[in-house]
Amino acid sequence: MRVLLLGADGFIGRRVAERLLADPGMQVTVLGRRDSADIRFDLTAGSPGALARFLDAVAPQVVVNCAGATYGTSRLLIQANTLAVATVCEAIRRSREPARLVHIGSAAEY
C-alpha cells in the first residue's frame, strides 16, 4: 500500500513512521518541513494546489496526517491544527486519485 505520511518527525509521527516502515507491504513517502523528509513542504504556508501536485506524483492510497502543534500562540495553533488540515483535505479533494485520510489529532486542536 502506498502511504504519504505527514508529520513523521513529531512525537506521534515518529512512532507511526516506525510501524509503517517496518511493514514490507507499505511504500511510505514522508512529506514535511525538515531535511529528513522525502518531499519538503510546509503545510502551514503551502497551497492546496501545490500539495495536490505532490499527491498526484506520489499517488498514495492513504494519507496519514500526524502533523500539528501542541504549544505556541493561538495563531500558530490555528495555522498548524486547522488551516494545515484544511490544506490537506482540499489537496486530497483536488488530486486525481483521492486518497483516504487518517488524521491523528490532539487536544491542541480544540
Rank of each mutant, 00 (worst) to 15 (best):
V3L: 10
V3D: 01
L4E: 02
L5T: 05
L5W: 03
L5I: 03
L6R: 07
D9K: 11
F11M: 13
F11L: 11
I12E: 02
G13W: 05
R14G: 03
V16N: 00
L20T: 01
L20S: 03
L21M: 05
A22P: 01
D23L: 03
D23G: 01
P24S: 06
P24T: 10
G25A: 07
G25D: 09
G25C: 10
M26A: 14
M26G: 02
M26W: 08
Q27S: 08
Q27C: 02
V30I: 15
L31N: 01
G32K: 02
R33A: 11
R33W: 00
R34D: 06
S36F: 08
S36C: 14
S36Q: 14
A37K: 04
A37H: 10
A37Y: 00
D38N: 12
D38L: 11
D38W: 03
F41A: 09
T44N: 03
A45C: 06
G46T: 04
S47M: 06
S47D: 10
P48G: 07
P48S: 15
G49A: 15
G49S: 09
G49L: 13
A50W: 02
A50Q: 15
A50E: 14
L51G: 02
L51N: 01
L51F: 15
A52V: 01
R53W: 12
F54W: 14
L55C: 07
L55S: 03
D56G: 10
A57V: 04
A57F: 11
A57T: 06
V58S: 01
V58R: 11
A59P: 05
A59R: 15
P60C: 07
V62N: 05
V64N: 05
V64H: 09
N65P: 00
N65L: 07
C66V: 13
C66A: 15
C66Y: 08
C66I: 10
A69S: 15
A69E: 12
Y71H: 12
Y71V: 12
G72D: 04
T73P: 08
R75I: 02
R75Y: 08
L76G: 00
L76P: 07
L76I: 01
L76S: 06
L76H: 14
Q79C: 07
A80E: 04
N81G: 12
T82P: 00
A84Y: 12
V85D: 14
A86Q: 12
A86F: 06
A86D: 13
T87W: 12
C89G: 04
C89H: 06
C89D: 02
A91Y: 05
A91I: 04
I92W: 13
I92M: 05
R93H: 13
R94Q: 15
S95V: 06
S95H: 09
R96P: 07
R96Q: 15
R96W: 01
A99N: 11
R100A: 15
R100P: 05
R100H: 15
V102E: 10
V102T: 08
V102H: 06
H103G: 05
I104K: 07
I104R: 04
G105E: 13
G105L: 03
S106A: 13
S106D: 10
A107R: 09
A107P: 03
A108Y: 09
A108C: 13
A108T: 12
A108W: 00
E109K: 11
Y110M: 12
